[in-house]
Nucleic acid binder design. Structure first.
Lengths: 209, 209
DNA sequence: CTATTTACATACATTTATGAATGTATGTAT
DNA sequence: ATACATACATTCATAAATGTATGTAAATAG
């Protein structure tokens, strides 16, 4: 029975199983990476910065991930799951209006800025893109009727509704972009009005059918 | 009468006035910076890269600009003028539909990706932001009814029309973002449909009045 | 024609990030 | 208890970017 009283780095982690330590550390790093993406952007998200946030050295990062971009790719996938799967509402709404609510509920979250950052960055940084491209495709697919059965059923054979859905998603992306470019990521003044109007159009759209 | 036959650097520029050389060089650097922003993004737009494109050394850049970020700020202002002022149509349309055409005509241009890049980057990079923030404000104002007399007149006292205009602009920003994140900046499949629908809504909006 | 300023190149010093190599403590199997 | 593996820290080598200092040719002033 070895008590291992003195933990040189942090008093926090008593004696835990290796698997536990690993999992905890990976989570810390992923969270730190996400936070850095959100308030530093992709370009300033360096291994140094992430590790400072996580309060560990880069040794930890490179032990668990082969590179910073691998961590970022995993962070993106992880964020994706957090927003779209773990979260309530797996995007199986019934009406256009409900779909708008559903998408907006995701896009408005601060984590979505991280997604935008990586989208833009990946286009510019093909080398590091390789690792994130898969996660990006998944993300984009979420908003594509073609990739989503429920949504596809709703829009099938209704060209107008399809175009409108696209319009709505683009508008919400625009709003998200606006937030991302605003100090403090504060909501824009006209956000509520725009969403309200989108939903009004949605109702009108389905009434026409 | 000194002919100055041998130009050591380029045979192109015969003996020209200093002011001419300066102006030409500044333009070359601005163009190179814009090009780099468009196909490298903000993060990878370095002084080295810009100068490689302009086929000059960094000495030239630092002679004309105090820093890379100053060049970028000036590039943004310059691009702004090129798109919004020098270009035909100073945004003085009469109907909502015409306004949509006008905005889309600007936003769809590849140069707008440079604007998006700087918008996002400036939020993340406060140090270098100082210099570009002014240009950014000008840019954003263009799309704000509050800052534009003609537009303000059109939307005044019509809350619905105001909200719709905002919606339209956000949707177009979303489309621009989509292009920016697509390899080759190719137009998205649904662009035409979205714009078409926006214009349809615009007509309907004004018919209601 | 000579002196001085301007436009630019070249060379150098500094900073910052990356990744690998190495060292050390802690958990785990026998 | 010993041997080994895993988790992480520390150190080092390298690359890339920035800014500055200095050198040189071309333009302009006297």
């Amino acid at each position: 029975m070895k008590a291992s009283v003195n933990s040189s780095v942090k008093a926090a982690d008593k004696s835990r199983t290796q698997a536990d330590r690993s999992r905890a550390m990976r989570e810390r790093l992923i969270e730190a990476a996400l936070a850095s993406l959100i308030d530093n952007g992709y370009a300033r998200t360096t291994a140094v910065d992430v590790c400072k946030r996580a309060e560990v050295t880069r040794g930890a990062l490179f032990h668990h991930f082969s590179s910073l971009s691998e961590l970022l790719a995993i962070t993106l996938s992880d964020t994706y799951e957090r927003i779209f799967l773990t979260h309530r509402d797996p995007l199986d709404r019934k009406t256009l209006e409900q779909w708008i609510d559903g998408v907006w509920d995701k896009v408005r979250r601060p984590e979505f800025k991280a997604v935008l950052e990586i989208w833009l960055a990946s286009r510019n940084d093909p080398d590091n893109t390789v690792e994130v491209s898969e996660a990006i495709q998944t993300y984009k697919a979420i908003f594509s009727p073609e990739k989503n059965e429920n949504l596809d059923k709703l829009l099938a054979e209704d060209k107008e509704a399809y175009a409108f859905y696209r319009l709505a998603v683009e508008a919400m992306f625009g709003l998200a972009l606006g937030r991302a470019t605003t100090p403090g990521h504060e909501p824009l003044d006209h956000e509520v009005d725009v969403i309200k109007m989108l939903k009004k159009f949605a109702r009108q759209m389905q009434a026409e059918k």
